[in-house]
């Protein structure tokens, strides 16, 4: 039907069809606009069950939506990314509101793991871990691909698995060049890196620290990581 004052309707809920037929009658043109209803027709436990079954996500059932996590979240408050709301992500997961959760694929990975939320949560929710678990669920559903954060995690694990000790310089170099982070690719950063290596603060390449008997530990670590578990 013709909809007046479309500006009052949430844009995502306006459906405009090129061609529309109702009961065999062609209603294309100005009759082709529909509003998707806002009513939530059901709750589902799919997301909750999936998240709660991961080691990182098991405290999701503790959440009672007080908002302490979001109140201190540096992404939400200091960085000003109001769409990044860990309390809300948890609620959407708890109630299985997948259509709504999907909308947050572009932001849910932006957590910087400061862990203030985990420190402050009065109910013992490991918020940062739970949000990452929800992110994992969303990725498994194909709602989001890899992100700068997930690529960093991947590079970090790969690097650490080599000798058991992180080679910061190698990690930063490979990540910076892959992500083309101009801010890090300049003479000042290079000079600082050189100085750190010269003074022995950072040991890289053949000089990097090693963990004794790492070969054995690496086998176990790989097995755990490949076994999944952590959404």
């Amino acid at each position: 039907m013709p909809i007046h004052e479309k500006n009052l309707v949430d844009k995502n809920r306006l459906l405009v069809k090129e061609e529309a037929k109702l009961d065999g009658l062609d209603v294309s043109g100005q009759w082709s606009t529909f509003i998707e209803q806002r009513i939530l027709g059901d709750y589902s436990t799919d997301v909750l069950d999936a998240v709660a079954s991961t080691p990182a996500g098991k405290t999701i059932v503790n959440c009672w939506q007080c908002g302490t996590c979001t109140a201190g979240c540096c992404m939400h408050t200091d960085f000003g990314l109001r769409e990044f709301n860990p309390r809300y992500f948890i609620y959407l997961a708890q109630k299985g509101a997948e259509d709504e959760l999907k909308k947050y694929a572009p932001v849910i990975w932006r957590c910087v793991t400061c862990n203030k939320c985990v420190e402050r949560c009065p109910k013992g929710v490991r918020v940062e871990e739970v949000v990452h678990s929800i992110e994992g669920y969303m990725r498994s559903k194909g709602w989001m691909g890899d992100t700068p954060a997930s690529r960093w995690d991947e590079a970090f694990v790969k690097n650490t698995l080599q000798t058991g000790v992180l080679d910061e310089l190698a990690l930063t170099r490979s990540y910076v060049s892959r992500e083309k982070l101009a801010e890090f690719n300049n003479r000042f950063m290079l000079r600082m890196a050189l100085k750190l290596v010269r003074t022995g603060r950072i040991r890289t390449g053949p000089l990097r620290h090693r963990v004794k008997g790492w070969e054995k530990v690496r086998g176990v670590a790989k097995e755990i990581l490949e076994g999944g578990g952590d959404g």
Partner: peptide, 12 residues
């Protein structure tokens, strides 16, 4: 109304 989702709900 699910007042946290701020949406009307009709749940069976």
């Amino acid at each position: 109304e699910d007042t946290i989702l701020q949406r009307p709900t009709e749940v069976p």
